[in-house]
Amino acid sequence: MAEGQVTRELPLDGRFAGGASVSVRPAGAARRVSLRVPAESVAAVSNSLGVELPTRPGASAQAGARAVLWLGPDEWLVIEEGERYPMADLEGAGVLFAAVDVSHRNTAILVTGPAAADVLNAGCPRDLSLETFPVSACSRTVLGKIEIVLWRMADDAFRVECWRSFSDYAFDFLKDATRGQ
């Protein structure tokens, strides 16, 4: 489709917060798919997508600019930051599954730096130590009063996915949490 030619107006464009130990900034535009796949279709869908759907709770997998996050026993979030169209790639998998384009539903915030976990823990009740939430771990959870998907991309780098209209709150919350860091 022609969508690729039209620039997206991201809700957090141009915002930044943080200092020496942490930075909070919006991620670039991404394509996203909410994937629902019964167990018997996982292999075929993985094949179409070019990424092995992780079946261990809280695991993620990546191939190139495409990541797949386990969110539930039959639910994954596909995030494509490259030029490809995951919805198109899924056509013709030939098995039972459901895919819904949620590219614009979510927006993402990158929280990076040595204090990243501390800043997130201002509102996220999860244990974000590397022992229990290692690199590549992902989960739907809460941040303050909203729901997020949290994905640890490196020891000190997290991606926070939230719904578009909650991104203002999410950013302001994280910004408030960076104060005094």
Partner: peptide, 16 residues
Amino acid sequence: VNHARGKLFDPVRRTP
């Protein structure tokens, strides 16, 4: 209450 004051008391949602 900590962070949940002012604009962080409750999310304010705006349309595109």
